[in-house]
């Protein structure tokens, strides 16, 4: 299907967006990513308001993960601008962006598999710690306190995401799939983010687990005041938690709006039907 040009310029969503960008926590403005000849993301604008859950959906290969990778600094946008809380972070290093309060999980879990669950979450706090080379060697009381604090917080986080205490010191590779997903979320949360990016977090989960995760995301928003940007295939989850949905197909934004609007959009239906055949 051809999807050149975005949705009608006069559509109400665009006007709505313009007002949202103002106070947005993070906004991506007209970003594109081109790999060689392939346009993986084409001129996409998305704004993530504070303390809201926003989703990106779209068929496989639509460019969702690539978009994430640009937000987190792994990829540099070929065009466009990314603004975090008023500051332009386009092209900044991933670790800087993470330190600025954007944490993520990966579509294919990327835990440090030879570290324990606790150690993984401790790594997540790297940017919030201060010990340097000399400090690590001499370990003055300040560093000792920091180390203990980090460990305690890691355990708290793991408890918070629902991991059983007895698995805290298991190597990540030996954890069940669901637990690995949990640890990844804990690792991201441990960095005290303002914005959490979740790339298909329910992939491989059964309906009950997805249900639990849905509630959990709402808790994160309400209790920790987090914004969440979610990539998700499970429509039940998406429709259940999202306040705003952006639909990508072939790298382009083909629709956006609240769940009801998006669900009713003929282009969205076409994109999904087209994909599933």
């Amino acid at each position: 299907m051809s999807t050149s040009g975005s949705i009608d310029p006069g559509a109400p969503e665009v006007a709505e967006l313009a007002t949202e960008v103002e106070g947005a926590l993070l906004s991506a403005e007209n970003v594109s990513k081109i790999f060689g000849g392939l346009v993986a993301v084409n001129d996409v604008t998305v704004a993530i308001p504070r303390k809201k859950i926003v989703s990106i959906i779209g068929p496989n290969g639509a460019g969702k993960t690539t978009f994430f990778n640009m937000l987190t600094g792994l990829y540099k946008p070929s065009r466009g601008k990314i603004v975090l809380d008023g500051a332009d972070i386009t092209g900044h290093r991933p670790d800087k962006i993470m330190a600025g309060g954007v944490a993520r999980t990966f579509q294919n879990i990327r835990l440090f598999s030879t570290m324990t669950a606790v150690e993984n979450v401790m790594v997540g706090q790297h940017a919030r710690m201060r010990a340097g080379l000399i400090g690590s060697i001499l370990r003055p009381p300040r560093v000792g306190r920091e180390e203990r604090g980090t460990r305690e917080k890691a355990r708290d986080m793991l408890g918070f995401v629902g991991l059983e205490t007895k698995t805290f010191d298991e190597l990540a590779i030996n954890l069940s799939y669901g637990d690995q997903r949990r640890v990844e979320i804990a690792r991201a949360l441990a960095s005290e983010p303002r914005l959490l990016l979740l790339d298909e977090p329910t992939a491989g989960m059964n309906p009950q687990e997805s249900e639990v995760l849905t509630t959990f995301m709402k808790r994160l928003r309400d209790e920790l005041d987090l914004s969440i940007l979610l990539i998700e295939h499970d429509m039940k989850v998406v429709m259940g938690v999202s306040e705003h949905i952006t639909v990508l197909d072939h790298g382009e934004k083909i629709a956006e709006g609240d769940p009801a609007t998006v669900r009713a959009n003929p282009r969205v239906i076409e994109a999904y039907l087209g994909k599933q055949g």
Partner: peptide
């Protein structure tokens, strides 16, 4: 590493 071009050290 992801594509060489992708992970950057510093802009300069």
């Amino acid at each position: 590493l992801p594509p060489q071009e992708e992970i950057r050290t510093t802009p300069v």
